[in-house]
Simulated assay, not measured.
Amino acid sequence: MNTDLTLVIMAAGLGSRFGGDKQLASLGPSGEPMLVLSILSAIRSGFQRAVLVIRPELEAELTGILTQFLPANFEYHFCYQSLSDLPQDAKLADLSHRLKPWGTAHALWCARDWVKGPMAVINADDFYGDSAFASLAKGLTARPNDWMMVAYPIELTLSEHGGVNRGLCQVAQGQLRSVAEWLNIQAQDDGFVGEGPNGLAKLPLQSLVSMTCWGFSPSIFNVIKQQLTAFIEQQGQLPKSECYLPAVVQAAIEQGVPVYVDVASEPWLGVTYPQDTVWVKQKLMELLGDKTH
């Protein structure tokens, strides 16, 4: 198998709660968007290329940003998250009810033609830290046919300005046993509360969550094909339904695929709401200063 490492960045989101294109927001010490900070971290860890899953209207501005901040010889590609780019058996005759793409599993599906070997998969608008990419590079190089994730303690991932969505992880013996999407997670005096698969519930204080910091082999695309096809059949007519990557990973775990877990040793930073930006800029300046180049 090709053991060159590819970083896949899901950058097609609409940023509805943020009120704009978070993936373009200037947050780093030199005005870098988060995705640039991630690519620079990945380069330091030995990744050879990046694939950015975007909306077509972002390409020109992103090209300018990447040209400004990345090494001239670093290889990157754009691919589009198109509503109609679905598995053959999942085609919908009428997409007129749909205004947004089909979620994170669909975003990764749209990158399938650009990835031949092991890949890290992240969000464009999150900061993961150098150590997360070092963990991914080490794991993917040692086990190029396996899957992995870097999990974050939940208390390091919340916003003071409202609820957040997270993939809640159950981990045993260094492997992921289950991951489920929880919505609107917030801190309370006695812990955390969120909307899980069975409705509103408390979360354990020591919870680990997925911040979309995954490592996959190309076998992920076969599982996405199965899950996306089933999803479109069941929920394809709902205008806002999304097929989440954690649901695909959970299906793979149930099929016997091992997913190894590293726990992050640096803080995760992200902007869910516009009010988060000042704090995140300050934290990035403290963490990175002028070390981004």
Rank of each mutant, 00 (worst) to 15 (best):
S41Q: 15
A142Y: 00
S82M: 11
E195R: 13
D189H: 12
Q275P: 05
P29F: 04
L108T: 01
Y152T: 10
Q48K: 15
L287T: 08
V171H: 06
S96Q: 12
M211Y: 00
G163A: 04
M34A: 15
G103W: 09
Q234L: 08
V257F: 07
N198A: 11
Q227V: 11
M10P: 02
F78I: 00
Q237C: 05
L269K: 06
S131A: 15
K91H: 12
G103Q: 05
N73V: 02
E59D: 07
L269A: 03
V53Q: 06
V248E: 05
G64P: 00
W182L: 03
L287V: 10
L92S: 07
S41H: 15
P274D: 01
A172N: 08
Q48A: 14
M10K: 11
F69R: 01
Y128D: 07
N123Y: 13
D126A: 11
H97S: 12
V36I: 15
F78M: 03
S135Q: 15
G270A: 12
E195I: 14
L284D: 00
N198Y: 12
L83A: 05
F221G: 04
L7N: 11
R17N: 09
V51Q: 04
E32I: 04
F127V: 02
P56N: 15
S26F: 00
G19S: 08
A180H: 10
G20K: 03
L228H: 05
Q250Y: 12
K100L: 14
S30A: 14
S159V: 08
L70D: 05
F216S: 04
I54T: 06
G19W: 03
E160L: 14
W214M: 07
V193L: 09
Q186H: 05
E160T: 07
S16N: 09
A42P: 07
Y244R: 12
Q275D: 10
H161V: 00
I54F: 01
K283R: 15
K91I: 07
M148P: 01
T229K: 01
A151Q: 10
G139D: 13
A264T: 09
A247N: 13
P29L: 02
S210E: 13
M10T: 11
T277H: 02
T141V: 08
C169S: 02
Q88L: 11
G174Q: 07
F18L: 11
D85P: 06
P29T: 04
Y273V: 10
L288I: 14
N123A: 13
G289I: 03
Q175L: 09
H161C: 03
K240C: 04
A111G: 08
T157S: 15
E155D: 08
T63M: 07
A264D: 02
L183Y: 13
F221S: 04
F127H: 13
G46I: 12
F216P: 01
I39K: 04
G236M: 11
V171C: 05
W114C: 09
A252G: 12
I54H: 01
A151K: 11
F192R: 09
L92D: 00
I122C: 11
A230M: 09
L238W: 13
K225M: 06
M34N: 13
M10S: 07
